[in-house]
Amino acid sequence: MSTAHQPSSAADLSLLDWASFAVAIPVFLSRWLTSFAFQNHGVLHWRQKFALAFLRTQRASFPTRILRWQVRRTSTGTAITQYCAKHQIPHAAIALSPETTSHHPDLRVPSPTLHVLKGAHPFSGNDENGPTLLYFHGGGYVNPLRAAAHMPFILACAGATNPPCSQAIILEYALAPEHPYPAQLVQCLAAVRYLIEDMSIAPGKIILVGDSAGGQLIGAVFAHLVKPSPYFPVLKLRKGERFHAAAMVSPFTRLPADWRTGSYKENEKRDYLTWKQVGEFKEAWGAKDDEVWANLCGLEGERRMWKGVFEGEGRLVDKTLITVGTAEVFLDDCRVFAVEDVGAEVVKVRRGDDGGKVKGKRLLLVECQDEAHVQVALDSVMGFKDGSMMRSIIGWLSGI
């Protein structure tokens, strides 16, 4: 059984919504083409500019209610199932038992579903000794996985390691506001526990990858391992164990009090994500600002904890990559988390770089020139494989 919302129907929109939608379409098309023709995004390829102009114009032309209805018509599980059927990718859905998320007496968290992809076709190999990729998708905790944006990237990541991953597992988690914080945290922890205890996959064979909200969830899992949250039982790795790798793609690292400062203000007209939309995601998610499992950076006294997660012999993950575009509203927050809290080395890349700058690095923040939030998702939709964020992630994975 799917853990996500029921797909939205046309009945969810009023006649006024439909009228507004119809009136806005010609305005949207005109603004989109104008934005594409006159935008200035430096080194970006025209296909990247085309996708970015589309998203920026779409979010400026239509109200949040219509955009959310449009995105949520297809659940994560349906999107994955349909994509795998279309591309003949072996796929199995595992619904975890209700007991996996029912530990806290005051929480009603549905059990998650794991979507398992494996076989020779998706990863260009069938090595059972390869690692397992566990993917947490983004979407502000309120939107499901988008097949065209996420699936090509997930498959590329799974095929980039050496040897290629033996399987890719995608977590289908419940969405806010129907299931607010900490539902997604609980489901992520249940998924990690299931892989280790029920599927008998050693942490050293697991690679965690997540974009945006999914990147935040990776950090939340690590925080729980060191500082257990009250929402889920203690989860500990055996002495000497650590995860093989983690890649946090444009992670949502901080819940800022003022949305109109720093890169939120500087990149508001460059990124497709705006301070207003981030505020809407935050409100729907309902997270608590003073909890490290929601607010990864900026809390007093947590810096030492993060150093222990990512550095030293006792670290919880062997190699870590964090990426951010220099046109992102999240740029400042990613820098604070990656450099000040985590202690990552910084590498700046641009389109055309071959990934050699990042290969073999153990703890790294990659800043991708002129690229937007989760640029790899936009590039995947456009079939573009030469973006700096895409090349960096694939190149880094090939060296772990």
Rank of each mutant, 00 (worst) to 15 (best):
P182Y: 10
A53R: 00
A158H: 07
Q187A: 10
E328R: 05
N295T: 09
R47P: 02
E345P: 05
C334E: 03
D12F: 02
Y135A: 03
E291G: 06
S124Y: 10
G387C: 10
N126E: 13
S124R: 13
G298A: 08
V349A: 02
V336I: 14
D198E: 15
S9N: 08
L397C: 04
N126D: 15
E311I: 02
N126Y: 06
L378Y: 00
I66G: 03
P63Q: 05
G42S: 10
D386N: 10
G298W: 01
V186K: 07
T274A: 12
V292E: 14
R335P: 00
K86W: 11
L145F: 07
V347N: 04
F310S: 03
A92Q: 13
Q88K: 15
D332S: 12
Q216W: 01
E340N: 15
E99C: 03
A377N: 10
I206T: 06
A287Y: 09
G130W: 05
S229Q: 05
N129P: 09
P164E: 03
E268T: 15
I400R: 01
D12M: 04
L96K: 01
G298E: 10
P63D: 07
Q369C: 12
V376C: 14
S111E: 06
V342E: 00
A287K: 07
A92S: 12
K348D: 15
A190F: 11
A120C: 06
E345Q: 13
D354I: 00
L133I: 12
Q216I: 04
G159A: 15
E300F: 01
Y83C: 09
A120F: 07
G312T: 09
V109S: 05
T320S: 13
T113C: 13
G356R: 13
D353I: 08
H121I: 14
W306A: 08
F136N: 07
N40Y: 04
F222R: 00
Q216E: 11
K357W: 04
K265W: 10
A190Y: 08
W285Y: 15
P251A: 12
L189I: 05
Q216Y: 02
T3E: 11
V336M: 14
L44Y: 02
F232D: 13
A246T: 00
A202E: 11
L299I: 12
Y264S: 06
A11L: 12
Y264V: 04
W275S: 13
S212E: 09
E178N: 08
F38N: 06
K49P: 00
N267L: 06
R65W: 04
L117Y: 02
G352F: 14
Y231L: 07
F38G: 03
E241Q: 15
G356V: 03
E241C: 12
Q375K: 03
A245L: 06
P163M: 09
R315W: 03
W259K: 11
G286S: 08
F310R: 00
D354S: 10
W396C: 06
L15R: 01
F136C: 09
R56H: 07
K307A: 09
V186R: 02
V234C: 10
Q58Y: 07
I66K: 01
A213Q: 04
A168I: 03
R391S: 09
